[in-house]
Design a protein around this nucleic acid. Sequence first.
DNA 1: GCGCGCTACTAGAACGTTCTAGAGTTTCGC
DNA 2: GCGAAACTCTAGAACGTTCTAGTAGCGCGC
Lengths: 339, 339
Amino acid sequence: MRSGERRITLADVASEAGVSVALVSIVMRGAPGAGAATRERVLEVARRLGYQPDSRARLLRSGRSRLIGVVFDVRHPFHHDLLTGLYDAAGKAGYQLTLSAVTPRRGERTAVGDLLQDRCEAIVLFGGQMRGSELASIAARLPVIAMMRSARRRDIDVVHNDDALGSHQAVDHLVALGHQRIAHVDGGALHGSAERRAGYHEAMRRHGLDGHIRVVAGGPGEEHGAAAAERLLADPPTAVTVFNDLSATGLLDVLRRNGLSVPGDLSVVGYDDTTLSRLAHIDLTTVGQDIDALAARAVERAVERIEGTATGPRAVIIPPRLVVRGTTGPAAAGALPPR
Amino acid sequence: MRSGERRITLADVASEAGVSVALVSIVMRGAPGAGAATRERVLEVARRLGYQPDSRARLLRSGRSRLIGVVFDVRHPFHHDLLTGLYDAAGKAGYQLTLSAVTPRRGERTAVGDLLQDRCEAIVLFGGQMRGSELASIAARLPVIAMMRSARRRDIDVVHNDDALGSHQAVDHLVALGHQRIAHVDGGALHGSAERRAGYHEAMRRHGLDGHIRVVAGGPGEEHGAAAAERLLADPPTAVTVFNDLSATGLLDVLRRNGLSVPGDLSVVGYDDTTLSRLAHIDLTTVGQDIDALAARAVERAVERIEGTATGPRAVIIPPRLVVRGTTGPAAAGALPPR
DNA sequence: GCGCGCTACTAGAACGTTCTAGAGTTTCGC
DNA sequence: GCGAAACTCTAGAACGTTCTAGTAGCGCGC
């Protein structure tokens, strides 16, 4: 049946099956309260008539929407894995997702506004640039769970990766390979940059490598890594931890163009374990975020907020995991300075 | 207001403003039929009370949903750009999108089923693996526009790139650079592979290079391009057109590992102009699809089907565009065989 | 001054489903 | 066998908004 043609409703099924509309609703929802024989008969009629539930009516009448709105930025490097994980987690919790994308030409405010109209019970958002005060005004209406972004407000839940721990893991790995002259290329003002930098600092100090601490300004893009590499070439360290994989890719390119062998002359650790890091010719050692865990915890927290059962702090921190590939190896023999 | 608290409705605004509910509805929709002073008063009350429209009620009562459902596969290489384009085009046509993702763990049937419940007026889908017969059963209910996939059925609209023309463009570019020994690495059984291969054949024949036609079996992944490169090494052509960018990346890796210079010894043209092709160290010459045009035409066709104004063939073909970067250059001097 | 057309505004029904209170029937325990 | 509890089924109202048909008032033209 096409636009303009009336759809089959519960009333049509009820009429054909000789029962009430309310009983057909009970059957179609799989709710208790219908006899087995009646249930079978109703299902058969519904199938034969091609009945398709109408979520508009359900959403309007039902006391609960059981919808979790997801605002996602199409350019976010993990949005595909996050969506996958969020759908899984929501399904398990008996909720449904309704998606609203942020694009270069569709702002976050529009994306959020659409979800409010849908009467979502909570909103999960990742990426994006909304100010804390704007998020707070939404949080006054319904639970807001922010992922992978700064939102230090007492009414917004935050789920993110332990960036500092990831840097510790990277430095630990390099130290275990014998490296001491380890530099860090940061992410500029981007979310996570300060934490990854702080983690690098802490880890270096923990290993007694204070004198080798060296941070080079960077950024999230390939070009940032490339520029950082140019600056490192004058006095190369034996290893580098880089803010993210894309930046590491740019850095690798410049190093290789300048005749340095990776990991022979210099080891490189990225961050995020994006698909880029897995390309055969990049084969990047990197710190991976546990996306499924992030998604699961975000939904869990959303459900807790909806159901009023939330306990614990607003911030949920998920530990990352080092993924060792081909860009890290033992420190070159001549690289160990006298102690 | 949080879950459990009653939302402000049109009735609340009407009561406070001293007008009817229907008039408030007219004002909030920006529909004609309200006096200017009344309109101002109502908007002020709505703003003060924090009224938020309820799309559930609107969707249920309104004769039209004006929703276009989009089924997208999160792993599709262009889904971010397509979503961007689709939102833009839908907005311009006065429609809204409702999204439903296909993930590794959420099948297309589920994704489509959700959209049917939302009473979308048409469905646009890209990627995915649904059989033509399944698509047809949906098309019996409402207009279906398939993008970038095979669906040769007379009741389903298809919007896609002219794959054959893209291959022509690639071969033309290489011939203009003096290449004659041009091989093609195909995409196996994947959508578009046959057309890209056919286009390569036609273009080679058009340039009188029948004797140099050479097709190597490939596939969509990096590893397919790498394997094809291994096979080409025994007798390298001077140029290769590759099914897609990712495959070209794999091929490039193997060529370079084996000491071949690109484009000095061998030129490479990918397909799709993905973000991979733009990385500084890849800098791939590639055939780009016009994503915005694809999205615009898909929405246009959806609207035509909804409004019963569709004319023209079911298939809408968008020409691609060659993007010249660093992997193509003049044929090496010793490469020209005697004519 | 009267009638017609237009605009502003209203009342009530409709959209398709779920919720809730009730009636009737069946089953189980004493 | 009787009473209570559980189950099946029904009727009617509700959800928040839009649609539709109508009324009242105003302005303009004859």
